[in-house]
């Protein structure tokens, strides 16, 4: 590969949920719950996943459109404070190689009747993906998280 260009960007997404920080946190920490909501569309599937939710543990999923999964996310949990904070770092790849490396911080704050969740992703984009596309993906995913938390 020649002249690889890296674009750095930071995205911040805030969502309010009408449940306690403990419940929002559990949707991240419970592997079964996580696999229900952490895909960016109803027609997308997770073909394989590993959520070893502890500091140093692996966070992996192989996912994509139904019938043609082609993306893999592979990372590590760097810091976990129950009901408050999750810090992860890892890469996202497709069959051609790495698309991005990211440092992700999820903060949970009790606020009003529920929880304010702030998701910050600091990324180095190495392919064609952009921060705008990443925001779109997370917006879909967090819509599904909202449904999960209502259930």
């Amino acid at each position: 590969m020649t002249a690889c260009k890296v674009v750095h960007d930071t995205i911040v997404i805030e969502r309010r949920f009408a449940v306690s920080p403990a419940r929002v946190f559990a949707a991240w920490s419970d592997p079964n719950a996580r696999d229900r909501w952490d895909v960016p569309g109803d027609d997308w599937v997770i073909a394989e996943s590993e959520h070893d939710f502890r500091v140093g543990g692996r966070e992996y999923s192989y996912f994509g459109p139904r019938g043609a999964p082609r993306y893999s996310g592979d990372g590590t949990y760097l810091r976990i404070i129950p009901d408050s904070l999750i810090v992860m770092a890892g890469t996202m790849s497709d069959e051609t190689g790495p698309m991005s490396a990211s440092l992700s911080t999820v903060e949970f704050q009790a606020g009003g009747p529920g929880t304010l969740m702030r998701y910050t992703e600091q990324s180095a984009f190495m392919g064609d993906e952009t921060a705008a596309m990443r925001i779109e993906g997370w917006t879909e995913i967090f819509d599904r998280l909202e449904v999960e938390l209502k259930g």
């Binding site: 590969m1 690889c4 890296v6 770092a89 890892g90 890469t91 790495p98 490396a101 180095a124 190495m126």
Partner: peptide
């Protein structure tokens, strides 16, 4: 190390 491209990039 997250990504290495010899002589070009280290993440």
């Amino acid at each position: 190390y997250q990504d290495i491209v010899p002589n070009e990039r280290i993440v």
